[in-house]
Amino acid sequence: MGSLLSRAEFATVLANQKVNFGDEIVLVCEAKTEDLTATWQKNGQKLDCVHDKHIVEKRGNLFSLRIKKADEQDEGMYTITLKDKQKDASCSAQVTVELKEWRKVEWNQDIMIRELRDFNIRREEVEQLNFLLYGPVGAGKSSVINTIKTIFERRLYVNCLAAEGSTSQTLYYKKCEVGNSKDGFLPFTFNDIMGVEEGDQSGVHTDDIISALKGHVKEGYPFNPNSPLTEHNHYYLKNPTMSDRIHCLVCVIQADRIFMMDEDTIQKMQRVREEAKRMALPHVILMTHVDTTCEMTKKDLRSVYKSKRINKKIEECRVALGVQKSCIFPVKNYYEEKDINEDINCLMLDALTKIVHWADDYVVEYSR
């Protein structure tokens, strides 16, 4: 029920409204007498009615405000004030406009886990699909691996060290398989690298990321921010096959830090993006920390694709890195949880399922 300043002239007051984007908002109250005039306000200011958008009506004791095709601009606190010659009374209601769910997620982890376990790469010469994770320090690259391994190990997995501060915990080029000897390994692997940082003296060298994309970097290579891998180094693979190359570039970005990334870091990531485009390599973004970015998503992770704030963050990612919105996936990593959470799993599995298929498409196309 909306907030009430005085009930003296009201039989019923305005009620808070939650409507979907594009639907009609209807606010109605009833007065105890008919000889009243009404004024409407939004957020404490006189309502500026727009033709064919706002419809104000009075029918007997009933007062109503209809707002057609609700959008984000229509959110706010609406107040009606009823007046006669001697006194006035007001009541208010909060209007919230929710986006319609713009993506559907299969909120059943067993279906997606089974699909990924049964997945077969369409080129026999490629035994595993290779994904390269890159992004700013602290964005959650290693935590993504931990989360995916948690899903398939069916227990909380924390073997990959996640950066808590401003320094990358990943010092060597590391390939992480998914699965185990008992249940079997899945046909894809994640390659973890040092985080991208500002300046030339810290963080992974951009040339090393590009070398990894092309399959030139051997596992165990120690990253040196000041000196990228050269073909004379014994960690350099001179003639990589399709099995050695990366099949999908996965950028990991923290949702609540997109606008806080420095220009140097963005330029480094854009350079990697351009190289991936030249290679026709699939490029996706995993946008982490969606729970700390959006209160609605924090309360209910299944609302992630109804959140205006998350939608806005996806758009910010698109603008910053030039990746189309359909390739940007909001996810949540395991961080402080003590138990397995199926909603966390499903959101990650939804992204992973699409990434696996796109990587397989790349292998099929460029193995000819």
Rank of each mutant, 00 (worst) to 15 (best):
S202Y: 09
M194Q: 15
I193Q: 10
Q201V: 08
L186C: 08
D192T: 09
G199L: 09
D200K: 13
F185M: 06
G215S: 05
H205C: 10
D192C: 09
G184F: 03
D207N: 12
H205M: 07
S211A: 13
S211F: 10
G203H: 08
D183Y: 04
S202P: 01
T206A: 11
K182F: 14
A212S: 13
G215V: 04
L213V: 02
P187W: 09
L186G: 05
I193T: 15
H216V: 04
H205N: 15
G199N: 05
D200A: 13
M194L: 13
I209S: 02
G199E: 07
E197S: 15
T206K: 13
V196D: 06
D200C: 11
M194H: 05
D207G: 04
G179H: 06
I210R: 01
G195R: 03
V196N: 09
G184L: 05
F190M: 12
G199K: 04
F185I: 06
E198D: 15
V204S: 09
S211W: 08
E197V: 01
G199P: 04
K214Y: 03
S202T: 12
K182T: 15
G203D: 10
H205F: 07
H205G: 02
G199W: 04
Q201I: 06
S181V: 12
M194R: 15
V204E: 04
G195I: 02
G215R: 03
I210A: 01
H216P: 01
F185K: 08
D183T: 12
L186P: 01
V204H: 08
H216F: 11
S181N: 12
F190P: 00
H205R: 10
L213G: 01
G199R: 03
F188D: 02
D208R: 00
Q201A: 11
H205E: 10
N180Q: 05
D207T: 12
I209L: 15
I209T: 02
G179R: 08
S202L: 09
L213Q: 02
K182W: 10
M194G: 03
P187S: 11
G184S: 06
S202M: 11
H205A: 14
D208C: 01
T189E: 14
G215P: 00
E198V: 11
T189A: 14
S211T: 04
N191C: 13
G179Y: 06
S211M: 08
K214I: 00
K182M: 12
D183C: 09
L186W: 06
I210V: 14
S181H: 11
S202E: 13
F188M: 08
E197L: 13
F185T: 06
V204C: 14
F188E: 03
F188T: 05
D200L: 12
D208K: 00
E198I: 10
D192R: 05
N191S: 13
F190V: 01
V204F: 05
H216G: 03
T206D: 09
A212K: 00
G199A: 08
I193H: 10
F185V: 09
G215N: 02
N191H: 14
V204W: 02
I210L: 02
N180E: 06
A212Y: 00
Q201R: 11
A212D: 00
D192P: 04
V196P: 04
K214P: 00
L213N: 03
